[in-house]
Design a protein around this nucleic acid. Structure first.
Length: 772
DNA sequence: GAGCACTGC
């Protein structure tokens, strides 16, 4: 401990902190900043006037660093040194150094915006730029001026953007503390490989046969590639000549691996044996594998990003940033000098890689964050002008406002509502907190709590779906409830109620392929949510899980209705002739229900007309994941609301000029264009669709106007039709145009649209347009 | 017959 680099800078750090309210610290790996900064300031007496709070982006880090510091100070964990993470507050009145996740600090700041009990706040690992840390950065900037006399803020940053952070905090000082990494030699490939899977394989074999002992860590993008590479490596190494080199163990490492498989990387290899670990970027920051000497870096990462203009997430393989590349290389130099093989040329690193990873705040849906900021009620904060280190796009903020408006969290002027205020109290995404409130009204709060809790843990619930376990799972899963056909939310409810009925049996989880840890987490979340709801309601609510598992259509109905209200921003309408869906909203997207969904089709093989979805994410295709059938009656008022939505009022601006965006419903000249006439009512489904079409858009083609204008008007109608049914194409368009351009235009023309999605039968829908 | 990287309240 005595030789930790950070301690050599003690005096300089104290001097800087003394003179400045904010300072940036570039602390390289192994500098000891996480454990020592707090102790240095504690020794100097900064804990006399308040607590030193240190935020971490991850729970395990908060706990393990706190434990370490308690040890070093020789105190009991939870006394002078403590930590606070969700479900676990190990602090006491005596606590003066507190480690906490950034999310917990945000929650605290909701109750006490000035964070008065803290004399020092250290945002550790801020260079990872988690969504929460970025919001904290903005709040800190404001707080240091308001509490200039009694608050010190320290922010850690990466080498490459320390100056940017400093600039953000009015050119505050930047200190660099060297790390304690061993040198890592970097090798670049001459060109980018055609297949980085093959290239990784070859490089790994080269290392294994030629280099002295030391483990190999390979960074891949996802489970699929990892499994492929692992099996190829096993084959090739098995075929190596006996005794020609040491043994090898190949270990996969990724998030959907059950915990007991993940911890295998922490047990050291047997003698004369090399471990080859094939990992996702989980090994970049979250898990540290000891003994790694060689790193193979594919240069890619799978990243989730949100596109506010389509309201859709996508999961893309993208190039890593320089910061990430360096972090990966650093994994080779923890125990002794190492080597890093980059499967890309140095010019790619220099010219193509971004300096730092795009911060999460620019890659996420911001509904939750915007609601949080609105609920802080800071008089000097305007959401669209909130001071972010890297501001999200206006489009993204407006998208968040639209979403919040649809679920009644803000009113048409963009002010937070009473409902919104309550929603912000709940540690859930807005759709779910809105659902809980509505469920409370309908008397199905207990069920809604369960669904919300299940969704918070959903990804960790079901075991990994590799090919061989799949069959086993299918076989065993016969007795898991199926959502009674209503979809995945109801199934999640039923699973939990079933488990409750077994008295939370661990064996039952195992028999049904459910992760025990995940289910316990659900129970915790559910209890926490129930407590908060009780507090909000200031009275006793019925939050008990029903004693006996019974399929209750009545309560499912109420629950689905509550969900529909909560997910007003995430609804989709089925296409006329097939089971594809189109999202409702400003820019409808053609999507499909994820194959893993339990949503059931009717006797004719058709899925429900309307569904709500928990997530819309494009992987190989855009998929709705976790859906629930809803009734058209509940959807109609929401469609109305969507159509009336006015973003200019919502964002609180009145002086902005309305742009005539193409295809924007509210921009259509309503008096001029009317679609009328529904001659063919043979099929009720088409009839219903036409009615909706008519209900939503009133077009009117004026007979007196110039024929050119008529065709423009008709073009608008067509554009609308395209919006309603994006997977269609028009037929005989030129014929329609020439009819309109004739001296005596007909009173009625027909647009015939044909479905172009490959999996349909080429059926067509006719939208007649009457010319008055 | 197709399939989600990693965190967190």
């Amino acid at each position: 401990m005595a030789n930790l680099p950070v301690l050599q800078f003690e005096e300089k750090i104290l001097e800087t902190v003394e003179q400045h309210p904010v300072a940036v610290i570039i602390g390289e790996t192994g500098s000891g900043k996480s454990t020592q900064l707090s102790q240095i300031l504690h020794r100097e007496g900064y804990t006399k006037s308040g607590i030193i709070g240190v935020t971490q982006p991850r729970r395990v880090a908060a706990v393990s660093v706190a434990r370490r510091v308690a040890q070093e100070l020789d105190v009991c964990l939870g006394e002078e040194v403590g930590y606070a993470i969700r479900f676990e507050d190990r602090t006491s009145e005596r606590t003066c150094i507190k480690y906490l996740t950034d999310g917990v600090l945000l929650r605290e700041s909701l109750a006490n915006p000035e964070l008065n009990k803290y004399s020092v706040i250290i945002l550790d690992e801020a260079h990872e730029r988690s969504l929460n840390t970025d919001i904290l950065l903005g709040l800190m900037k404001r707080l240091v001026t308001r509490r200039a006399l009694n608050l010190k803020v320290l922010i850690t940053s990466a080498t490459l953007d320390g100056d940017k952070v400093s600039k953000f905090f009015s050119n505050c000082p930047v200190m660099t503390i060297p790390g304690k990494l061993y040198p890592v030699e970097i090798f670049y490939s001459h060109e980018r490989p055609k297949s980085y899977l093959e290239s990784s394989l070859k490089t790994a074999l080269d290392i294994h046969t030629r280099e002295p002992e030391g483990d190999v860590l390979i960074f891949m993008t996802g489970q699929d590639d990892i499994e492929k590479l692992v099996s190829k490596l096993e084959d090739r190494i098995r075929s190596l000549e006996e005794g020609s080199c040491m043994d090898a163990i190949i270990l996969p490492l990724h998030g959907s691996l059950p915990p007991e498989m993940q911890v295998r990387v922490f047990s050291p290899p047997p003698p004369n044996c090399r471990r080859i670990i094939v990992a996702t970027n989980i090994a970049e920051t979250s898990l540290t594998v000891d003994g790694v000497v060689y790193v193979i870096d594919s240069g890619y990462v799978k990243q989730r990003q949100y596109n506010p203009s389509t309201a859709m997430y996508s999961l893309d393989v993208v190039q890593i940033s320089k910061v990430q590349a360096n972090q990966r290389a650093g994994r080779a130099g923890r125990t002794r000098p190492g080597k890093c093989y980059r499967l890309y040329p140095s010019t790619v690193y220099q010219d193509e890689f971004l300096d730092a990873t795009v911060p999460e705040i620019q890659r996420s849906s911001l509904a939750g964050s915007v609601l949080y900021l609105k609920s802080l009620d800071l008089p000097d904060i305007d959401i669209l002008k909130f001071d972010f280190l890297d501001p999200p796009s206006t489009e993204s903020l407006e998208d968040a406002l639209r979403q919040l408006y649809l679920i009644d969290a803000i009113d048409e002027n963009g002010s937070i509502t009473k409902v919104g205020r309550t929603m912000a109290e709940l540690p859930l995404e807005p759709s779910l907190s809105r659902t809980l409130m509505e469920a409370n009204e309908y008397g199905c709060l207990s069920q809604a709590l369960t669904v919300a809790a299940m969704l918070s843990a959903e990804t960790t619930l079901l075991p990994n779906r590799s090919k061989n376990t799949e069959k086993k799972r299918k076989h065993n899963h016969m007795d898991l409830p199926d959502g009674s056909g209503w979809g995945d939310h109801i199934q999640l409810l039923q699973i939990f109620e079933f488990w409750h009925q077994t008295n939370y049996s661990i064996d039952w989880c195992k028999d049904n392929g459910l992760q025990v840890r995940g289910m316990k987490f659900v129970k915790d979340v559910r209890r926490q949510l129930a407590q908060i709801m009780q507090k909000i309601a200031e009275g006793s609510l019925d939050v008990q899980t029903s004693g006996r598992w019974v399929e209750s259509q009545q309560s499912y109905l109420k629950l689905r209705k509550a969900l529909c209200k909560g997910y007003a921003n995430q609804l989709a309408e089925r296409m006329l002739h097939h089971n594809g869906y189109r999202t409702l909203g400003l820019k409808p997207q053609v999507v499909q229900v994820h194959p893993a969904s339990v949503l059931k089709a009717d006797e004719e093989g058709k899925l429900p007309d309307y569904v709500l979805y928990h997530e819309l994410i494009a992987t190989t295709r855009p998929y709705l994941r976790t859906v629930c059938a809803v009734d058209i009656k509940w959807v109609m008022p929401i469609i109305d609301k969507i159509n009336k939505l006015n973003i200019i009022k919502l964002s609180g601006g009145i002086d902005r000029i309305q742009e005539g965006t193409e295809g924007n419903v509210s921009d259509m000249p309503k008096e001029e264009v009317v679609v009328a006439g529904v001659p063919d009512d043979s099929e009720s489904r088409i009839q219903a669709a036409r009615e909706r079409f008519l209900a939503r858009f009133h077009f009117h083609i004026p007979k007196t106007s110039h024929s050119g204008e008529r065709s423009i008007a008709l073009l608008s109608v067509w554009r609308m039709a395209k919006m309603m049914e994006p997977a269609v194409n028009v037929c005989g368009w030129t014929g329609v145009l020439s009819q309109l351009h004739a001296d005596k235009p007909p009173k009625e023309v027909t647009i015939e649209v044909r479905n172009v999605l490959s999996f349909t039968l080429g059926s067509s829908v006719v939208f007649p347009v009457q010319v008055f």
